[in-house]
Computed example of a mutant assay.
Amino acid sequence: MSNASQPDFSHEAFHAKRLNIPQTSICGVDEAGRGPWAGPVVAAAVILDPKRIPKGIGDSKQLSTLKREALYQPILDQAIDFRIGIVEADEIDAINILAATHKAMAQAVVALHSSPNLALIDGNRAPNLPCPTQCIIGGDGLSLSIAAASILAKVTRDRIMAKADSIYPGYGFGDHKGYGTKAHRTALDRLGPCKLHRLSIKPLKGFNETY
């Protein structure tokens, strides 16, 4: 398996050979939104067609907004299958962010049209899935399937937060996407939190939801 700086399909090929399964039965899974103060956590599961992989796929954190947006539709069009899972802020508060992340990942994988034979998970802890899993630390920079999932999750979440900007004006959700910036803190001090805020996290403890 390659340790190159750009993701490739070597992890998928390795595990397909190891398990004697088709590469087209392996999905990549990643999330966006574990760290923000507001908004949902979003996960994506993607099964790529090894013969039709859009050029330029990489770790979503290393790509510009324009590049992620440019790759989003080609991934949808050329992937064998993809699904999105979303867990909202109130449930994150109720069950904690790790459990919420795993729930969003499970939603995405279970919703795939055909059950995968293996799920490649970004990180070191796997959700409870109805298929075998393989965790890959830094997987969004190593596996094309995980990288594609990272792009779908990130673009989906960014679009959700951009829409939230008009529903909850004044917080700057369209700019910071719910992350903890100085402008976000200033807005919280002025307006108090809204329904999108995660009241269980340390920066927001002591606040009460105002609208």
Rank of each mutant, 00 (worst) to 15 (best):
D59G: 02
E209G: 01
P40C: 03
R34S: 03
A153P: 02
Y168D: 08
D81V: 00
L129I: 00
L76D: 08
K202A: 14
Q62V: 00
Q23T: 13
E88S: 10
R68G: 01
A149I: 10
I201F: 15
L118N: 03
Q6R: 10
G138S: 10
G192Y: 06
A38S: 09
K182Y: 07
P193T: 10
P22G: 07
L19E: 05
S5D: 13
S114F: 09
I80W: 00
G28Q: 08
D140H: 02
I75C: 14
V41W: 05
S166Y: 11
A99Q: 14
R52W: 07
R34F: 03
D122M: 04
P54V: 08
M161S: 10
H113N: 12
Q23L: 12
A183H: 11
F173T: 00
S115E: 12
D77V: 02
V87M: 07
L98V: 11
D81Y: 14
G123S: 11
S115K: 13
A149D: 04
R83W: 01
S115Q: 15
V46T: 12
R125Y: 04
T133C: 10
G139V: 09
I57Y: 02
D49P: 12
P36E: 01
G138P: 14
A45M: 06
I53S: 06
L118F: 02
Y179A: 05
K154F: 11
L66Y: 03
A108P: 00
Q73I: 09
A99I: 01
L76F: 08
P74N: 01
A70F: 08
S200P: 09
G170P: 11
R125C: 08
C131F: 11
V46P: 14
I75H: 11
R83H: 15
